[in-house]
Design a protein around this nucleic acid. Structure first.
Lengths: 189, 189
DNA sequence: ACCTGAACACCGTTCAAGT
DNA sequence: ACCTGAACACCGTTCAAGT
């Protein structure tokens, strides 16, 4: 279904791969938006929330965030859909949020701040999912390198200790920072 | 130009608002993608980087991130474009990165980590720009509330001290956490 | 209940023809 | 150099007609 990237995720494309007329799809789904919601919800079921059961909060958020980003980095066209559509009638999505909320509560988070913390983490995750798909030369300054010498030098010196890709290194750094920062917030609010 | 949200940002729509045939646009721009890049670059020029000149790093990142998010939260359809397209030949964008990089260097950041830190912050900013446009009832669980009681309770208890909107509260929390976490990273790496 | 086929109102883009 | 108008290959969606 995701064979051809998302080029194929068109009503006619999907219809063709099912050997059916495009209009036939509307017997099973109200609109394309509906279809995307269905796919999105099934993907949410693949996000790993198991660490919230028995791991310390920092560990659990780390595992969850990595899994969440990995699932959606192969499905970037769905990000606007998840980011903007209500969770109503999305059972897997609700189960995911339920497990995460329970983990936060168990770690001693005040319930009034939990949703904000989850939303903040998700914002970072969605943005990072885009970043995974960025081309390697996204920061190549081209003809105008002379205009931004300091930046150009920093791009050239960018390096990560392990064998991580650039996107992975940025995600790791940001996630570690956000987890540490959030933990500090909840300790002395 | 942004009058009708982004409904109007279609080649035919733009052509009509210029009282010209759609095909005439291709005398001035190679493709729609090109046009979006032009708009994106001009928006980058509106991001406030002035605080990097004379403010402490934490302050400067705070001001910059807020401005960055505000500029692009009114232009969400451009986010996939910024997130995935090279900065080549985008002069305003390069100037923005140059100012930010200089600010990081001045604050004592090691040059190999600066780009990763900027990318992490940007990922959070892009995700947050989406969130600003999310409907108020995005977490309304609907019929399935019983499936996720803890989450439903947390959503109901969500509250922010000031008069901030939900999206703003989540952005504030996340930004503060990330800034504090990044600062800690650079102090003892 | 589920399908087809024609139709509609759109997209972005190309290209010959004009001035 | 810049425009028009027709054309092309697509979109998502509707709807009468079939089984």
């Amino acid at each position: 279904m995701t064979r051809d990237g998302y080029k194929a995720l068109t009503m006619s494309g999907l219809a063709k791969s099912l050997n059916v007329a495009p209009s036939a799809l509307y017997n099973h789904v109200g609109s394309k938006q509906d279809l995307l919601l269905l796919i999105e919800d099934s993907l949410m079921g693949r996000v790993d929330v198991s660490a919230f059961i028995d791991q310390p909060w920092e560990e659990a958020v780390h595992t969850w965030a990595h899994s969440y980003r990995d699932v959606f980095s192969s499905h970037v066209p769905l990000i606007p859909v998840i980011a903007l559509l209500p969770v109503t009638n999305a059972p897997q999505t609700l189960l995911m949020y339920e497990a995460v909320t329970e983990g936060f509560l168990r770690a001693g988070w005040p319930s009034e701040r939990i949703i904000d913390a989850i939303v903040a983490l998700e914002s970072f995750i969605y943005g990072s999912a885009y970043d995974v798909n960025a081309p390697d030369d996204i920061f190549a300054p081209g003809d105008l390198a002379a205009t931004a010498p300091t930046f150009t030098a920093a791009v050239a010196r960018r390096s990560n200790p392990g064998q991580l890709s650039d996107a992975h290194a940025a995600f790791s750094l940001g996630l570690q920072a956000m987890i540490a920062g959030l933990a500090a917030t909840v300790d002395h609010p």
